[in-house]
């Protein structure tokens, strides 16, 4: 039997899925399937990147509507996998509301990788892409070091302000200044290759991929919203680098 409480948990599943990186189509599909499994007569779900609206008509004739506003995204495919399995299970077995709540809590205990691993990975990615685009050994060392500093910068700046554009502008500014200094001192050799290695860390790959997948599956509004977000992030990265040239006067060597 669908109650207000149960619907709220179902929305939690949808919300968490969207936040951890699912396409809009998957979220809408999961929510409406779960509601149908609980004997709703009619389910209307509308999801865009920043909000979910669900309105269901019960067999008794009553209508329930609930909304969620989504403010913050954090990609976590492990969580998405867990939620996907949960929604599949719920559709099949229609458990009590209490069970769903416990499961969501269980999944919500994020098992992120250790912070040491995360710092090393930032270094590894930046270093890898510096080699990928033709940097030499000095460049790789500098790039990896800056990658780790970038991780620190992201963590620090996010504590001040969570706005994506603000974070990206400041981070690429930090990267630009550091690369400029290290190349000027003579440790790094080519400004562009080190900078590109670090830009790969900031580039909105997920937003781009998901926006395309949204557009194909017919959610044009959500897809376009994500696409424009990706473009704005790319722009804010270049604003950050542009800011560097204000300080140092010209950036390409």
């Amino acid at each position: 039997m669908l109650t207000k409480e149960l619907l709220s948990y179902i929305l939690d599943i949808g919300e968490q899925m969207l936040v951890s990186g699912a396409e809009v189509n998957r979220v809408e599909d999961s929510i409406s399937r779960i509601c149908k499994a609980y004997d709703a007569r009619r389910v209307d779900v509308f999801t865009i990147t920043s909000s979910i609206v669900v309105s269901i008509q019960l067999k008794s004739g009553n209508t329930l509507t609930q909304t969620r506003r989504i403010l913050k995204y954090s990609t976590d495919f492990d969580k998405l996998d867990g939620l996907n399995n949960l929604s599949y299970y719920v559709c099949k077995h229609t458990p009590e509301a209490e069970y769903i709540r416990n499961e969501i809590e269980q999944i919500g205990i994020t098992r992120l990788y250790d912070w040491v691993v995360q710092y090393l990975v930032y270094g590894m990615i930046a270093g890898s892409f510096t080699i990928f685009y033709g940097g030499d050994l000095n460049d790789v060392a500098v790039s990896a070091a800056i990658g780790m500093i970038l991780k620190f910068a992201i963590t620090f700046i996010q504590r001040v302000d969570k706005n994506v554009f603000f974070v990206n502008i400041l981070c690429s500014f930090v990267v630009g200044i550091l690369v400029f200094l290290l190349v000027r001192i003579g440790i790094g050799h080519s400004f562009d290759k080190i900078a590109i290695g670090n830009i790969m860390l900031l580039i909105p790959g997920l937003a781009l991929t998901n926006s395309i997948r949204d557009i194909i599956s017919g959610d044009t509004i959500a897809g376009l919203l994500r696409l424009s977000e990706a473009i704005l992030i790319a722009l804010s990265i270049s604003f950050g680098f542009g800011l560097v040239s204000v300080f140092v006067g010209g950036m390409v060597k």
Binding site: G205, G242, S245
Partner: peptide, 29 residues
């Protein structure tokens, strides 16, 4: 598991990071 999981990570080497960088550096200069 959702296909996005693999696609997002696997598409990364194709992402035009270098082209984006040169575009903006030309604009700045």
């Amino acid at each position: 598991t959702p296909a996005t999981t693999f696609l997002t990570a696997a598409i990364i080497p194709l992402v035009p990071g270098r082209a984006l960088y040169y575009t903006m550096s030309y604009a700045i200069n």
